[in-house]
């Protein structure tokens, strides 16, 4: 117990960091997981959508701020940018590319998104340049919160402490409610579980797919937009994001929304504690968690063997 007396406070700090990191990871991974559930495509371009969402939010935010908008306006701008990117790029990608591919082998579908990722990486560079971009007005406006640490006090940004976890929780709750209790949501679940049967029941699977992909794209963009106030957007940010999201999705069990939340939490907290206990292994944490989980639960945390469902 003496260890805890000494380190208990540090554990508390690590928890706070882990939670906000988990929230950010969840925001990216949940869209990927949703799309995978319905379409059975692991969308590599999800990382690009994340990056574009971030860039769009930063650009829009800086533009609005230059018009003299108050700093609180930054928050709705982030959301608006995400919706815009999702609504524009989502249907475009789904209609023009993925729909034509839906009867092909899964590996071909996956590679289509890989090709798209390569194209979008360069387009994003041409559109937004290579200099790091940031939009931190909302974060500055919200200020910091002092968290007591023994006799000391450690400042955390309110954005990190409240906004990120808040939005993540809200997203989780909304998705859970929509999927369980609304007609549209139940249609999505039906297509996820059994596409053929769902179509036989008269569900317009094509429409559901389009809707899900658009929602997934918007969620990716929202993940990027939410990150825009804290991180610096640079070329290559999509590539490192997507590989982390893959780990979350595989750990979670495919198509599992709640699973994605738990996996993100595991990875977020795991990484945070690693920085305190064994900083040299921080990078390996997501993969170590994934391998460990799959060792004991080959279908992922919440995955159900054989039957597939959200």
């Amino acid at each position: 117990m003496s260890w805890f007396a000494e380190n208990g406070l540090l554990v508390g700090l690590a928890l706070l960091d882990g939670l906000s990191y988990a929230a950010a990871v969840f925001m990216v991974a949940v869209g990927l997981n949703l799309v995978f559930g319905v379409m059975r495509v692991l969308n590599v371009a999800h990382g690009s959508l994340y990056a574009i969402g971030g860039y769009a939010a930063a650009s829009l935010g800086l533009f609005v701020a230059s018009l003299g908008a108050p700093p609180w306006a930054g928050l709705p701008v982030l959301l608006a940018a995400a919706v815009l990117v999702g609504a524009l790029l989502g249907p475009l990608i789904e209609r023009l590319l993925l729909r034509r591919m839906q009867d092909q082998e899964p590996v071909l579908q996956l590679l289509v998104t890989f090709a798209l990722f390569m194209i979008l990486e360069d387009l994003q560079k041409l559109a937004f340049g290579v200099q790091p971009v940031v939009f931190d007005a909302p974060l500055k406006w919200l200020g910091t919160v002092d968290v007591p640490f023994g006799a000391d006090a450690i400042p955390f940004t309110a954005y990190q402490l409240y906004v990120l976890p808040g939005v993540a929780l809200a997203t989780l709750a909304i998705l859970a409610v929509v999927l369980r209790y609304t007609l549209v949501g139940r249609m999505v679940v039906a297509v996820t579980v059994d596409r053929e049967a769902a179509r036989a029941m008269g569900i317009d699977a094509a429409k559901v797919t389009l809707l899900t992909f658009t929602a997934g794209a918007a969620l990716a963009a929202l993940g990027g937009a939410l990150a825009a106030p804290t991180v610096s957007l640079v070329p290559g940010v999509g590539a490192s994001t997507i590989v982390l999201s893959f780990a979350v999705v595989a750990t979670a069990g495919l198509g599992q929304i709640e699973g994605a939340a738990v996996a993100a939490l595991l990875i977020g907290l795991g990484r945070s504690f690693a920085v305190y206990v064994a900083p040299e292994f921080e990078v390996v944490v997501p993969y170590a968690i994934m391998v460990t989980v799959l060792l004991f639960r080959p279908q992922g945390l919440f995955g159900v063997a054989e039957t597939r469902r959200i």
Binding site: L13, A14, L16, D17, V234, V237, S240, S272, P279, E282
Partner: peptide, 19 residues
Amino acid sequence: LFPRFGATDFSTEVTRVLA
């Protein structure tokens, strides 16, 4: 502390150094 190359979130590192 050696965060991943290309890392975007340093909140844990900052917290630890603050403490």
